[in-house]
Design a protein around this nucleic acid. Structure first.
Length: 111
DNA sequence: ATAATGACTTTCA
DNA sequence: TTGAAAGCCATTA
């Protein structure tokens, strides 16, 4: 989805793999971009994950709000407010620090 | 093909 | 533990 939504087959499978990986994250847990990238088989392409979720009209049923950066904080995004995401995570049962930080040692999803 | 940008990660202070 | 800088990868111009 660079411009036209019709050529969804154009981009590499990495996109779908990433989306799939995010979908596999269970409620009440979160994952880092790098973790998702690794789960998708694209280790090191953490930025790719961010780009995918950013361009994400494809991510209709994708719980992108469960994806946070390596600092355990919600990444600053242009579109939906980070505040909304933190709110969703709290609703999922994720404990947020006073600074809105998440304890990845406990909530980071791991197979 | 080269340069600039970005929902990141890791390391140093 | 928190804050800033450099590095890495893919996409877009």
């Amino acid at each position: 989805m660079t411009r036209e939504p019709r050529d969804i087959e154009d981009p590499p499978e990495a996109y779908m793999c990433i989306l799939r990986a995010v979908k596999q994250i269970p409620p009440g847990f979160v994952s880092t971009y790098g973790g998702v990238a690794t789960a998708a088989g694209c280790a090191g392409r953490a930025r790719l994950v961010g780009h995918v979720l950013r361009t994400c009209p494809l991510a209709e049923g994708v719980p992108w709000h469960r994806v946070v950066n390596g600092s355990g904080r919600v990444s600053d995004r242009p579109g939906t407010g980070a505040d909304e995401q933190q709110r969703r995570l709290a609703a999922e049962g994720v404990e947020l620090d006073a600074s809105g930080r998440i304890d990845l040692s406990v909530f980071q999803w791991r197979t």
